[in-house]
Structures are given as structure tokens and as C-alpha cells.
């Protein structure tokens, strides 16, 4: 049995052989409980159970289950052409547990920062993440089969109800160097800011577009890959922050998926920052 408490490197792809899982279950003390627990994430437990073998097609069937406080909340059948199933666990942007609700992240800074005219600033902040569970097909890509959110889910409206955006909300400190993050709950995000205006500005929060964005991981620590640039300028007498995120691998770490192309996302903060 693999548990987060006694095993390092949960993030990544794990192969579970059909016969081993069967053998493991046959040695289990309780013969009624055939579940082969993969990982425990606080109140969530995920398991794989060998379901059988199709003689005609030669496919192996596995049953994926997620339990929340010992109640089944997700139950899916996985097929594998080989006698093992590959399950990948990656940090994911916090958009999957409530799909279609939000595409942006709103970071509220506990300590707002003040930037002089025409000055630059590099800083770090923490963002919420979800745990994405993917089924990997041998060299054919991966598909999200489940998603676990361990951190508190909060949402906020940026702008007006007519023209604004619903954003995932997180209150964070601002750090000048890389900082420790809560494992499986947070990722570190590095940002680069320019104040292109002729006046001193105060940044209280930022809205970051997260659609199609991937995270990196190293030793079960998660990072937002790529670079996040914030340019504050003036337009028609109004201060506007242009947040641009170029999602690409930047660290000596692993990406959940290899992006087919560099993804650039932009968000214009015209309702204040």
C-alpha cells in the first residue's frame, strides 16, 4: 500500500501491474475488501481494483474509486491493453473541481506592496492547486479521470457582474524569495512587475488567467511554470495592469504534460488592482 505519509514522490506516473494488484489483494487480511489503496490524501482515499480480463480483446480492466470519509464519491472503470495500468498524479490548476465556473485566479495580497515610478520588482506568491489524477495510455497521452481539492475553495467577482470575471480566490503573502508551500494544496508562483507609470502605485491583488496552464513539480512541491509578467500602465487617464502568463517549463522539474506549444494568457485588469 502506498501512502502519502510514508512515501516520497507522489507526483508522477505510477504503473500498477494487474497480477501484483491481484496478489496484493489475495494476501489482504480482509478478503471482502478487494480495494488496492494507492494513496491517501487527508480524508480522500484512492484505490484501484483489478476487475478482470477480457479474453476476446485481451484488455485488462481496473476499477478506480475515490472515497471521501469512507464513502465512494468517484467510481470509474479503466481499461488497459497491457497487463498494467498507468495512473499519473500531478498538481493541477484549481479549475477542474468546478469546471466552467472560472478561468482566472485572484490573488489578494495580505501585505500590499508599493512600487515607485518606472521601477521593477520580482516577487513570489502562493496559489491554490488541485490534485489531478490522470490515466496514461502508453505513449498516447493522458486523460484527467479525477480531481481532488484539499484547500479551501473560495471564489470572487473581479469587475462588474456585466463585464467582470469569476475568479478562484486566494489570500497570500508576498515573498521576495522562494518559499515553502503546503504540499498538495499550494504552488509557488514567481512574478515580475514593471511600473510603467509616472506615479507610485500600490498593488493589492492580481488576476492571473489560468486556462490551459500547467504546473511543474519537484519533490512533491508544485510551481506555476513559465513567467508571469505584470505591466502597469496608464490608458485614457486610468491605471491598468496587464497580466501576461507565458506557460513553459522553466525549472529543473517535471511538467505534468509536455505542452504542444507555448501557451500565452493575458488579462487586462481595468477595474483596479
Amino acid at each position: 500500500m502506498l501512502e502519502t505519509s510514508n512515501r516520497k514522490g507522489v507526483y508522477g506516473c505510477h504503473s500498477f501491474p494487474f497480477l501484483d494488484t491481484l496478489a496484493d489483494n489475495s494476501n489482504s487480511d480482509s478478503s471482502n475488501n478487494k480495494d488496492f489503496t494507492l494513496f491517501n490524501f487527508r480524508d480522500h482515499k484512492i484505490s484501484l481494483t483489478p476487475e478482470g480480463e477480457s479474453i476476446k480483446s485481451g484488455n485488462h480492466l481496473f476499477r478506480y474509486k475515490r472515497y471521501l470519509n469512507n464513502e465512494v464519491v468517484v467510481d470509474k472503470l479503466l481499461t488497459s491493453s497491457s497487463p498494467s495500468v498507468n495512473v499519473c498524479i500531478f498538481p493541477a490548476v484549481p479549475l477542474y473541481s468546478t469546471p466552467d465556473l472560472s478561468r482566472h485566479l485572484y490573488l489578494k495580497f495580505k501585505s500590499p506592496f508599493v512600487v515607485d515610478p518606472h521601477q521593477k520588482l520580482d516577487f513570489y506568491a502562493k496559489m491554490p492547486i488541485e490534485i489531478g489524477i490522470f490515466k496514461e495510455s502508453h505513449k498516447k497521452g493522458i486523460l484527467l479521470i479525477d480531481c481532488i481539492s484539499l484547500c479551501k475553495q473560495q471564489y470572487i467577482l473581479y469587475g462588474t457582474p456585466e463585464h467582470g470575471a469569476i475568479c478562484r480566490y486566494k489570500e497570500t503573502e508576498v515573498y521576495t524569495a522562494e518559499s515553502e508551500t503546503a504540499m498538495f494544496e499550494e504552488a509557488l508562483i514567481g512574478m515580475h512587475m514593471h511600473n510603467d507609470t509616472d506615479k507610485i502605485i500600490q498593488i493589492n491583488m492580481l488576476v492571473i488567467p489560468l486556462n490551459d496552464v500547467m504546473l511543474e513539480h519537484r519533490n512533491d512541491n508544485a510551481y506555476l511554470s513559465g513567467k508571469t509578467e505584470i505591466k502597469v500602465g496608464s490608458s485614457f487617464g486610468k491605471d491598468i495592469a496587464n497580466v501576461q502568463l507565458i506557460n513553459a517549463k522553466t525549472r529543473d522539474s517535471q511538467l505534468s504534460q509536455t505542452p504542444s506549444k507555448e501557451v500565452t494568457q493575458e488579462f487586462l485588469m481595468d477595474s483596479g488592482f
Partner: peptide, 8 residues
């Protein structure tokens, strides 16, 4: 309640 917005 997660879906109650923090702001407004």
C-alpha cells in the same frame, strides 16, 4: 460555502 463569492 465555496460558491458564495468573497466579493461583493
Amino acid at each position: 460555502t465555496p460558491l458564495v463569492l468573497v466579493e461583493p
